[in-house]
């Protein structure tokens, strides 16, 4: 077993463990903290795949976002957030069935995907992955349209939030 395999196994175990802990905690903040551990584990997996940019963005976006999520959890959930609450409700069975169906479907789909069994060609040591990614995002024969559509969507969300939050002049 190489060092990388050992790190991969340890991280995967950590991700699964904290994912399990996250959905079973009765305390909302504990669940959020376990979620952070799980997402950080995913960042470690990205590092193992030599996708440094993705790893850093994973930490930047998710861990920063979860701080905000926790604040909203504290502010918006009713009553005292430290109160222990039952994590499952009456629709537990349906959720379990849907999740199992979804998982099964994903396994079949990914199993049929040809890239699973083939090994990707190794990048040469001089490839600057960030440069390649940046060029691909703005290149017309790569991802420029999804990239622009995503930015328009984000802008629309931003303006929408401003419109919703704006004080109405008529109600003065």
């Amino acid at each position: 077993m190489t060092v990388e395999q050992a790190v991969f196994l340890f991280t995967s175990a950590l991700i699964l463990f904290s994912g399990f802990m996250m959905v079973t905690r009765r305390n909302l903040v504990h669940a959020a903290l376990y979620l952070i551990v799980a997402l950080f584990g995913v960042a470690v997996i990205f590092v193992l795949l030599e996708a440094g940019f993705l790893a850093v963005v994973q930490v930047l976006v998710y861990i920063g976002a979860i701080a905000i999520l926790m604040i909203f959890a504290v502010m918006l959930t009713r009553g005292d957030i430290s109160k222990e609450q039952e994590p499952v409700n009456a629709d537990f069975g349906w959720a379990l069935m849907l999740a199992a169906l979804f998982c099964f479907g994903l396994i079949i789909l990914i199993g049929q995907w040809p890239a699973v069994n083939s090994q990707a060609p190794a990048l040469s040591a001089e490839t600057d992955t960030v440069f390649e990614l940046g060029s691909a995002l703005v290149s017309p024969d790569a991802y420029v349209i999804p990239f622009e559509v995503a930015s328009v969507l984000l802008l629309a969300a931003l303006i929408g939030a401003l419109v919703v939050a704006r004080p109405h002049k008529k109600s003065k």
């Binding site: 440094g52 940019f53 930490v59 930047l60 920063g64 979860i66 701080a67 600057d128």
Partner: peptide, 28 residues
């Protein structure tokens, strides 16, 4: 010498925010 060094600095900064939130919440 990460090729995303600048972004890395921003990313680890979010651990600082997290530590403050954890300290504030857990103190009760």
């Amino acid at each position: 010498d990460l090729n995303v060094g600048v972004l890395y600095i921003a990313a680890v900064g979010s651990f600082g925010i997290l530590s403050i939130l954890m300290a504030g919440w857990s103190s009760n």
